[in-house]
Design a protein around this nucleic acid. Sequence first.
DNA 1: ACAAAAGTGTTGGAGGTACACCCATGT
DNA 2: ACATGGGTGTACCTCCAACACTTTTGT
Lengths: 255, 255
Amino acid sequence: MTPASQPPRTREGSVLEASRSDDRGYQSDPTTVSLAVSTVIFALRPRPKTGLMTLWIPLVRRIRQPHKGLWALPGGPLGAEEDLAEAARRALRDTTALTPKYLEQLYAFGTVDRSPRDRVVSIVYWALVESAEASAASESDNVQWFEADSIPTLAFDHNTIVEYALWRLRTKLEYTRIAHAFLGETFTLAQLREVHEAVLGKELDPANFRRTIEASNTVVPTESRLAGTRHRPPRLYRSAEKPDRGPFTHHGGPH
Amino acid sequence: MTPASQPPRTREGSVLEASRSDDRGYQSDPTTVSLAVSTVIFALRPRPKTGLMTLWIPLVRRIRQPHKGLWALPGGPLGAEEDLAEAARRALRDTTALTPKYLEQLYAFGTVDRSPRDRVVSIVYWALVESAEASAASESDNVQWFEADSIPTLAFDHNTIVEYALWRLRTKLEYTRIAHAFLGETFTLAQLREVHEAVLGKELDPANFRRTIEASNTVVPTESRLAGTRHRPPRLYRSAEKPDRGPFTHHGGPH
DNA sequence: ACAAAAGTGTTGGAGGTACACCCATGT
DNA sequence: ACATGGGTGTACCTCCAACACTTTTGT
C-alpha cells in the first residue's frame, strides 16, 4: 500500500512572478481569474562544505507587492499563444538560463485566497536539470539556489508547492528512470546511485542497486569504462531508448 | 517498473460546456486565455442485457458551436469566487444531480489549439459516484450515460481526457482505497471485489482478494452479515477511518 | 602488497498467485 | 441433500534486503 497522491489543499498565496512587468499589485477587474505558470526546478549540486551531492532549487526574489522581498518560484502569466509547458520552460530559462532534461506538470493550484488581492490560478510544473550544467548556472541578487531540505519561507503557497514537488520527485524516482535526467550522456552505476541517494536522502546497497537497475532495463552498458579512479575502473552506461510510455501508448494500441 | 504517468500532449479542442449561458462561439478578446473546469464522472451501473456491473460515464450534448451536437464532458467556466474543486463539483451536480464520494484533480489541459477559436485552459477533475445513487441518476436528451469502454467521438480533446482519467482510476485503484467510493456505508468483500473487477475489467481470485484487502487495513469488519442470499451469509465491512494521507502528512511530521 | 571501489553469489523473509478444500445458508 | 458462494490452508514463485566474497585497478 503506497501513499495516496492527493495534493495539498492550500489556503495561501499566488504565483505572480518577480519579473512581471506591470507595477500593479492587484488585478484591475476583480471578477477575472488570471492564469500563471510556475516551475519547481531541481538540480543536484555539491553541498559547500562536505562536497556531497544534494538536491537544490533556484528561487527568485519578489521585487513587487505582494510579498515583496520574499523568495518565490520562478514563473509568470501565461501567454495567449503559448502552451503551458512552453511557459514553464520559459520561466526556467529566464532564471537559470538552462534547458530542462525533464519537465512535467505538477498540479494546478487555485484556491480563491491564495493571493491577497488577485484571483490567480497557477499551473505548476516541475523540472530536472543536468548536474553538470547546474553547477555553472547563473546566480544573482535576485536568483539564488537553495538546498531542498532548507527552503526559507516563500511567497504565497509556494512552500506547500515545493513540498509537493519534492514528494512527487521522490515517489517517481522509484518507478521511472527520471534519475537519468540529472546525469550526462554516459554515467557509471555509482553515479546513478549517487543521484538516488541524494534525492532519497539515504544510502543504498551498491550490490542490490546494481541488480535492481539492471533488471529494470532502463540502462544499457557501453564498452567504455571510466578511467582515472584509484580503483577498478567502472563500466559506463547510457540511458535506455524510450521504454517510458504515457498512459495512452499503453491501452491505446493493441495489448 | 510501472508505467510512467505522463499525460497526453493533445492537439485538439477545449472544454466549453453545453450549458454555458453566452451565445458566442468564440472569445471576444483574442489575447485572453480563459479558464474552464470539467469533470470526468465515474459510476458503476449494470450493463443492460447481462446485468453485469461495468464502468459508466455521464456526458452532456453540446448545444452550441463549436462541436455543436457532439457529446462532451460536463464543465464550465471558473467562477471568480469559486475554488477549482467547487467548480468541478458544480459541473457534477448540474449534470447528474449527485454528490461525489471522491473528487480529485486530473490534469490541466492547455495546448493553444485545443479549441478552434478560443484559447481555453481546462482544469479537469475526476469523480466517483456511489453506485446505488448512480442508478437513479437523471438522464435526459442532453445528458446520457455511456459505458467507459465504448465512448463515442467527443468534442475537443475530451476523448483523450477520458482515456487518461480511466488510466488514472485503474492505476490508483491498486494502491488506494478509492474503490470504497463506489459502495455504500457497509459492503461485503464480494461487492468490493465486484468493483475492482468492473474497473479493471478482469476477474480476481476471491481468496487472494480477501487476504490482500485484509492485509491492507483499508476495511474493518462489522458484526452484521448480509442475509437473503441463497448461500452462506457474508460478513459486512466498513471503510477504515482515514489511513489515506497526502504527501504532506508523510514527511511533514517526524519520520 | 594494499586500499578501495567494482562487481558476483548466497541466503532468508515478505508478499503474491494458483488451487484444493471446508463452512454455512436457502431451496 | 445439494448447490452456491463465503471463507481457510498451503505450496510455490518471485522479488528484495543483507552481507560475505571475489575482481581489478592506482599507488
